[in-house]
Design a protein around this nucleic acid. Structure first.
Lengths: 222, 222
DNA sequence: GAGCATACCTACTCGTGCGTAGGGTTACGC
DNA sequence: GCGTAACCCTACGCACGAGTAGGTATGCTC
């Protein structure tokens, strides 16, 4: 065959580390677009410019590949946040910077993270992985809240903190979803809005300004 | 054959309407446990005590079946909420009752709704269906907020309302997830906690108490 | 109690896509 | 320049599960 006329040098035979990253890039892209089950290993391999057995050789089965994606993106996200929070900042600023970094990250990786995250929740094998990540975040947030509260001399139960932290994290994820669907929106401004509802709400609550259910006519308080 | 000794009368030959409900029950259960792809039509049929072709005859393809599940559960949920909110109630009480009804519903249908909901988000074909439901809820919440705000003479942008509404809805969903994983928790108490962070936060925000990012040293305000 | 619609079944087809067997080729050490 | 290890391919096996063909039984109407 006379083929391979060195048109584009076709860059074949790349070192493993490089190929692995290309594969992961392709996998994230395809998983995002098609969903875990909708994605075929053939398409991923194709998109990475490589053949299927290579994917199996380097990253293992489909499940392992997905976990690898999850792991890489998760680590990147956590890193993006860790890079901007310094322990000497005030609680509110730490929270705001985290929000900013998080939403900024999601905004920059629309394709990647948010959809990957949406994917992973449904599938049994990965729910655990995700829940763990989520839990770590929730604990960080709960920690922030607790610290702030304790420093103001207020007592709160573990459960109360946990629920509030979950609410905050859920709210943020939801706003992240919104952000993914609104490319024109500015992550920083969104973070500020988010901060408003979250911080002001939490602060008020923690300061003791609670809302109590109205006693409706005739109902005896238990 | 001497079989069918009327041990249990085996209740065969039931009218269509009844069988359809049994099938839906089974489908919800299996979809919840296994996920959309993990569930097989055989298992669903089996669980409903019927053979596969009946499922196809009554509810159509797997996709249609799932949509039917989604639809039934979605309708039930909306109904549960609609049953407790009267238009003559104050905004905060309407919101609280909705929360209560919603979390109560989720608590009572742990198996059913929450997991179904988690499932549907990932799969392309149903994301639309779900987003529509979600959007309706967001709009209702946004409406509540707007009404309250306008009545206090404050101006807010469409976008701001939308983000806050998304945050609230996301927070609630997240807390619902938490509730599913904590069977010992009381939905009503959780609703009250939720109400605290949501309403107090939103109210403060809307009253104009905003949080503003600190101007860090040397940074010029744009 | 004949006829008909409806409920119901067993047993298949067939596409799809994961994972692999088995073999070729290019770089790199010596 | 020659062996060897890494990179890379084409082409398949195989299981699993959606959907169907074609036939049976049962209750209802007149």
């Amino acid at each position: 065959m006379l083929a391979r006329v060195s048109s584009t040098p076709t860059f074949r035979r790349l070192p493993r580390a490089v190929r692995e990253q290309q594969m992961l890039d392709a996998a994230v892209k395809v998983f995002s677009r098609r969903g875990y089950h909708g994605a075929s290993m053939d398409e991923i391999a194709d998109d990475a410019g490589i053949s299927k057995p290579m994917v199996y050789a380097y990253l293992g089965t489909k499940e392992e590949l997905f976990v690898a994606c999850l792991h890489r993106e998760g680590t990147r996200m956590m890193q993006a946040i860790a890079d901007v929070v310094a322990p000497d900042l005030s609680a509110d600023e730490r929270l705001w910077r985290s929000l900013q970094a998080f939403l900024g990250f999601v905004g920059a990786h629309r394709d990647g993270w948010a959809v990957l995250y949406r994917q992973a929740r449904g599938e049994q094998p990965f729910a655990g992985e995700l829940t763990a990540l989520r839990l770590r975040i929730v604990e960080v947030v709960a920690g922030m809240l607790e610290h702030t509260l304790r420093s103001e001399g207020r007592e709160v139960t573990e459960t109360e903190l946990e629920v509030v932290a979950y609410a905050l994290v859920g709210a943020t994820e939801s706003v992240a979803d919104w952000l993914v669907d609104h490319p024109e929106a500015d992550p920083e401004q969104t973070a500020t809005r988010m901060m408003n509802v979250a911080w002001v709400g939490a602060a008020q609550l923690l300061a003791g300004t609670t809302w109590r259910p109205p006693n409706r006519r005739g109902e005896a308080p238990s």
